[in-house]
Simulated assay, not measured.
Amino acid sequence: MSERPTSSDSVEPCIGMLDSGVGGLSVLLEVQKLLPEHSIRYIGDSAWCPYGSKPAGLIQQRVFQLTDELIAKGANIIVVACNSATINAVEALRARYPIPFVGMEPAVKPAALLTKTGTIGILATEASIAGEKFHHLLETHAAPLKVKVITQPCPDFVTLVENGTLEGPEAEEAVRQYAMPMVEAGADTLVLGCTHYPFLRETIQKIVGNHLNIIDTGQAVAKRTQSLVPSAETEAAPSLHIQTTGPLETLEALFPKLCPGTVATLSKLEL
């Protein structure tokens, strides 16, 4: 359920969240479960989506702009609910701003511990796979256990979610293209390395089979946010503001599908 903005310019202490589009809403749902008493302000940068194919410097510059906007609206902690933005900007954000930042990283460690075949598949964006942070994860968690890691960029997954195509022939064909070669190579555990991908989880499970493990990091990020967030000091009812840099009508059509039953104020951000 969505509402048109009435006072979207108001400032209140809140959890800030940002993503290249609507994918980070998968993390927002997990944060809301653990922190229902906190207001949340989310920016989906759909006008610039996807981040995964863009240069690191441009991603970082754009994330700084979104962060400035969130802090101006009262954010006292920010969840970078985007793997590509985390890879390219989270350390710079921590150095530049005096508030906590929670980033995303592919769940290499739990996948390496869970696999029985010794092979895991990482479905991610080009930016995430190319980043030094990702390679450090592999060296730290997969290499010592001699786990084989297969990586696969999935640009069509982001497009599907941004278009609201979460099931059906088009989504199933994309899953076959990206995931089935990993399964055929022996992977028994797949990591969803982009916050858009959990919205395709049911379709992915349908195609690869229920015997495969599928892992994402939304719950872990929510728990980390819970450990860092300042206490909610206001007595006002918590609010949820969702902004998009893309067309507002697209967000209004997508939001009920991605977050059914969730009440939020939706608005357009010119940036």
Rank of each mutant, 00 (worst) to 15 (best):
A111C: 07
P198H: 00
T115R: 08
S84K: 00
Y97P: 07
S84M: 03
R94F: 09
T262K: 14
R41A: 05
Q219W: 08
S227Y: 01
V161L: 10
E69K: 13
K73R: 15
G261T: 11
I150P: 06
A81K: 04
K268D: 05
Q219F: 10
G131L: 03
P36H: 09
L200K: 01
D9K: 13
G261Y: 07
V102L: 07
P198E: 08
T125D: 13
F101G: 03
F101W: 01
T117D: 08
N76V: 13
F134G: 05
K257Y: 08
P50T: 01
V208T: 08
L93P: 01
W48Q: 10
L93Y: 04
T117P: 06
E167D: 15
A232I: 01
G52Y: 06
M182V: 04
D9A: 14
Q226S: 14
S26G: 11
T203Q: 08
L123Q: 04
C259L: 09
R224N: 11
H135S: 12
K146M: 13
I207D: 02
I214W: 01
A127I: 02
G16T: 00
Q65W: 00
E235Q: 15
R176P: 06
P110H: 01
H141M: 08
V208E: 11
V108K: 00
Q243G: 07
T159D: 15
S8P: 00
D188V: 06
D45I: 02
A237C: 12
L138C: 08
A92R: 02
D45M: 02
R4G: 03
I59E: 01
P36T: 11
I77H: 09
F157K: 03
H135I: 09
P50H: 02
I77D: 12
M180R: 01
T67N: 05
T244D: 07
L145C: 02
I15Y: 10
E172P: 05
A72V: 06
C49D: 13
G24P: 03
V22C: 13
V80L: 11
F157Q: 05
L34M: 10
L254E: 08
I150L: 15
T225R: 03
Y42N: 00
Q243P: 00
L34I: 03
L70P: 05
T189W: 05
C49E: 06
D45V: 05
G21R: 04
A174R: 15
L123A: 07
E37V: 06
G24K: 08
A47L: 11
G74H: 04
S10V: 08
R224H: 13
A92M: 03
D188N: 12
R41V: 13
V108F: 07
A237D: 15
P230T: 14
H141V: 05
